[in-house]
């Protein structure tokens, strides 16, 4: 794997680990799943495929961020604003 790609993958992994601390089912659950996924693709050597995977990883980070935001917003709305 080329050096910039290697760095990008490591960054992805670190960022996701950091985000996993807020995962609803707990950090350990998230960490194990994350580790498995990264190990599964660790043999990949085709730079093009790796590029696509990195893109996918960045997309997943955005999705997790959106999930956390929505979850918090909904919790606050339910607690303080729903009159029913």
């Amino acid at each position: 794997m080329s050096l910039p790609q290697r760095r990008a993958v490591l960054n992805l992994y670190k960022t996701m680990l950091y985000m996993g601390r807020d995962w609803p089912q707990g950090y350990d659950f998230f960490r194990h799943r994350l580790h498995k996924v990264f190990i599964k693709n660790s043999e990949e050597t085709d730079p093009e495929k790796i590029r696509i995977m990195i893109k996918r990883g960045e997309f997943v980070i955005k999705e997790i961020e959106a999930l956390y935001k929505l979850k918090k917003y909904r919790a606050m709305k339910r607690r303080y604003y729903d009159e029913s």
């Binding site: 670190k14 960022t15 950091y18 985000m19 961020e65 956390y68 935001k69 917003y73 606050m76 709305k77 303080y80 604003y81």
Partner: peptide, 15 residues
């Protein structure tokens, strides 16, 4: 109040 804005996520590099 809740609907003022959508707060951003504090990312790892920014922390």
């Amino acid at each position: 109040d809740l609907r003022l804005n959508e707060p951003r996520y504090a990312t790892l590099p920014n922390i």
